[in-house]
Design a protein around this nucleic acid. Sequence first.
RNA 1: UGGGGUGUCGCCAAGCGGUAAGGCACCGGACUUUGACUCCGGCAUUCGCAGGUUCGAAUCCUGCCACCCCAGCCA
Length: 553
Amino acid sequence: MSEQQQAAPKNFIRQIIDADLASGKHTHIRTRFPPEPNGFLHIGHAKSIVLNFGIGEDYHGATNLRFDDTNPAKEEEAFVEAIKEDVRWLGYRWDELRFASDYFEQLYGYAVELIEKGLAYVCDLSPEQVREYRGTLTEPGRESPYRNRGVEENLDLFARMRAGEFEDGSRTLRAKIDMASPNMNMRDPALYRIRHGLVHHQTGDAWCIYPMYDFTHPISDAIEGITHSLCTLEFEDHRPLYDWVLDHISIGCHPQQIEFARLNLEYTVMSKRKLTQLVSEGHVSGWDDPRMPTIAGLRRRGYTPASIRSFCNAIGVTRSDSTVEMGVLENAIRSDLDASAPRRMAVLRPLRLVISNYPEGQVEKLQGPNHPKDAAMGSRELLFTREIYIDREDFREEANKKYKRLVLGKEVRLRNAYVIRADEVIRDAAGEITEIRCTYDPETLGRNPEGRKVRGVIHWVPAEQGIPVQVRLYDRLFRVPAPGREGDFLDDLNPDSLSILEEAVVEPSLRDVAPGERFQFEREGYFCRDPEDAADGRPVFNQIVSLRDSWGG
RNA sequence: UGGGGUGUCGCCAAGCGGUAAGGCACCGGACUUUGACUCCGGCAUUCGCAGGUUCGAAUCCUGCCACCCCAGCCA
């Protein structure tokens, strides 16, 4: 995993780590990736994964995978497994697998310590009242009438909260900080809430009180000896609370929270709520729909782990809000696949072409290199016959010199085969072109014709031996760079984000392709065999990304 | 309007007082049996704006402006 850090300038977090190492503050670095198991990971999480695990690797430190599972109402075991799979697929291995719920007993103990120190109290205010008491952004809040309960009473009440004596919402444990703080997070934040009747995927029904993120996270980090706790910008206002918790309990470790900007990508959405809505309302086929920005979607689309890693390293890590263009992601997968994907020929919109001077019934075995610049990748056999298919886009009855494909009366090179000339167009009753009659030049296999130069090269597939497949072409999921910027994001969905080509035919060597195998269909793009076949059993190929196209017309 | 942040090329992003890296995109041109790849060349006299300090400022100071985040018993 060294393809990504090509002497790139170090981001500000790595600079902080360098300084901490240089000053002797730390001798060993430990980070963590802390997802809540309430949904699928997306490309934004990949940024965090690459950041955290990348630092763990590069500094010869360690990185934990920790599930932030403090809210059983939203979490599921299935998401735990899916997240683990995604992290592994991206190419990372965690040092230790932890759950915040592993620490519930310790967390409870630290809560008791805060109560004993007079720094936390049981509050009987209802959620609505708490909101009223909290004040607003510009006005200070008011202190809860329960704020000055005695330590013994608080201890008793907290124990009874745990014992299940009180109803959901009737009480919370709150930190006693400052109701007048300009930072809303410091206005006596809730530390514990009561939640009955839930089955936690790790702890079952052992608890009916659950600790809040702000209380759990710093302590979990400290327990694990995390040196640098990296999170996104919206947690910046929580840092004073993160520090407050660690400053007031007996725990010998105080990780440093550092925030960075989350990833935004043009023409897609990243929020869990929106992604969930796309799936639940059927706008996409599932979390792994190839158009989704989820790791599962990108994987099914055909993106490689290396391409996602290199993308994450290319975009950098800073504190400024930014929205990255799709082109950067596309560039990452193109450069990976250009080097590694074997070349094949596939005709997406077939047009029959008959070579009238080629013997009927003859099947000629030709060789096509798997890669134009890497002979080590070998070659595959191609079958050349009298009747072949070319793409409808590659033929015109008339065209100017800019058009480098087959034109009536003109010549073109068939990729890996002969030069042909189009002689005649055959139409059906409706006037639609159904066939092109051509003649070929037998002297042009592997060499250029004499006395003339043939500019264009088009791909082809033998008509009889070609394999019918279904090809799915993908476009951006949304038609605007910032979906939902004005109005409902669903109104910005791109109605043409998926095109299914039922007539496509691929070369015979593609007969037994494993799901997930990637190829470059020459002159078209990179494609990947989908794990599921079409309803009629034909293989399905997903377009990962098109080739760069500087022609445009 | 309280608090916390951010503003360097179309999009990312280096830069940390010594005179604007790099990537993506884009535009030329070469090469080419993929209009791909590769290669060569071009692409910020200027760093949100206005002042100030300094021999020297994107970097320091002051004041504006714009945008983002915060009022869950979510994370």
